[in-house]
Design a protein around this nucleic acid. Structure first.
Lengths: 243, 243
DNA sequence: CGAACACTTGATAAAAGTCAAACGACGTGG
DNA sequence: CCACGTCGTTTGACTTTTATCAAGTGTTCG
């Protein structure tokens, strides 16, 4: 364990005291390897653990009685998984690994200690969970009101902007690592239609693809088409307690 | 000011110390009347205030460039509005009054004092904001994967369950107080289609209507149709710090 | 080399949207 | 107190979007 992924992420928003950093580090004491496709948590199962993603990509999702799946959120390195479970004893959503990776489970009750000892860090986590909430409402708007092409444009932009937070090297290109079926389950379309629309975005010269990597050729126009707003820029942390 | 709406709500989940209760009461020191249709906050405007709803109903929404509206969330008495704005200097969503009512604005910075002085209450607010998040992902699933009829069933159930939290008298009937256009903007349908589907729910004997009031005649079947789960029951607050 | 698995394409069907018009309730001003 | 205008609901005819079904093409990995 070189460095704490989670502390590294939080430091982008707020200078941490050594004590705070150590506390965050403790959340990642128990790294666990997961393999692509592995189910980490099942909906309705008892939740005792929350997670930090170290490497790889994860997703939360729900399966409807008729077998349909809705992917709720993707998780990347440095992300905190499970804020939704803090309110419930039973998991409101399932969790699975999209790629091989490492996640760090920690007990839900450690959050209590964190709140008591480092309320400032807890507050930062609260605020970051609100950016997640806003990203969700953006996608809600996308599913509720936008065309298939717009949903895809917004989806791709959201992913690249989230990857950029953790990786300064990303310019206009990224590994998607999702099947078209998974994309469809995230944006509420069938894989067939996803295929047609992605293909169309490609023909329109807005994106290009080469074995799994996506390049955004005209980000401005994609933003326009997808009614997209970057929610990971321009956060206001000024009001948080100081150290 | 008889009692603090917000404290009354929080007391349903956790016993409050006198100090905590007083702190919550202070958030409601400045009640403000709003009239039906009044815009309380505009997307992209500077946010300095958060709100507690005392009476009436409010909504948050977003307008797309082509004029379409997506209603993100309804707010009822005792609800806290603005958790999304805690992360941003500029409002990510607009806020308007669906009915006449009273809201209590308080400065975003008072949240800081609350966190420092009553971290336990702040933690409870965090957890409650997660129930809101889960309700949002439920609606996301609804918009992404469910038929028009299912979306309406789930929408009605969600509203009645939320009203029940604040009002023990509600059995199977409630005032909707939304136009069919507003319903459509919430669940991602046109008002015309909302009309047809509501009418169909009525013909199927699942609901009945009499000037604005909706009665749920077969809640079990509505739940089945709408793939609905009550997220306001069965919360796990046990792990929160004690007084 | 072959079996999964993912992607692509075409034909057709279903769901929801659009446009237009009529109806009804309600509140306001003459 | 009534007429009228506004706003919301209802209904019908038609269009568009997306889903469904089915089959074929790569591609990757044991």
């Amino acid at each position: 364990m070189t460095e704490s992924c989670f502390a590294a992420r939080l430091k982008k928003y707020m200078a941490l005291t050594p004590g705070e950093e150590a506390a965050l580090h403790r959340l990642e004491e128990n790294p666990r390897h997961v393999r692509k496709g592995q189910i980490i948590q099942r909906e309705k199962d008892l939740v005792t653990e929350l997670f930090v993603v170290s490497t790889g990509r994860m997703m939360s999702y729900v399966i409807l009685p008729d077998g349909q799946r809705q992917i709720l959120r993707l998780y990347f390195p440095g992300d905190f998984i499970g804020s939704a479970s803090t309110a419930y004893a039973k998991a409101p959503e399932s969790l699975a690994a999209l790629t091989d990776g490492v996640i760090c489970p920690f007990d839900k009750h450690s959050l209590r200690r964190l709140i008591e000892e480092y309320p400032r860090v807890a507050a930062l986590m609260f605020v970051l969970s609100q950016t997640e909430r806003v990203a969700l409402t953006d996608r809600l708007t996308s599913l509720g009101r936008a065309s298939a092409k717009a949903r895809l444009a917004a989806f791709l932009l959201d992913i690249i902007d989230r990857l950029r937070v953790a990786d300064d090297n990303i310019r206009d290109s990224f590994d998607l690592r999702l099947t078209q079926e998974e994309i469809g389950d995230a944006v509420g379309l069938t894989s067939v239609h996803v295929n047609r629309m992605i293909r169309q975005l490609e023909q329109d010269g807005l994106i290009s693809r080469s074995n799994g990597a996506i390049t955004l050729l005209d980000e401005a126009r994609l933003q326009e088409i997808g009614h997209y707003t970057n929610r990971y820029d321009d956060l206001d942390m000024d009001w948080l307690p100081t150290a």
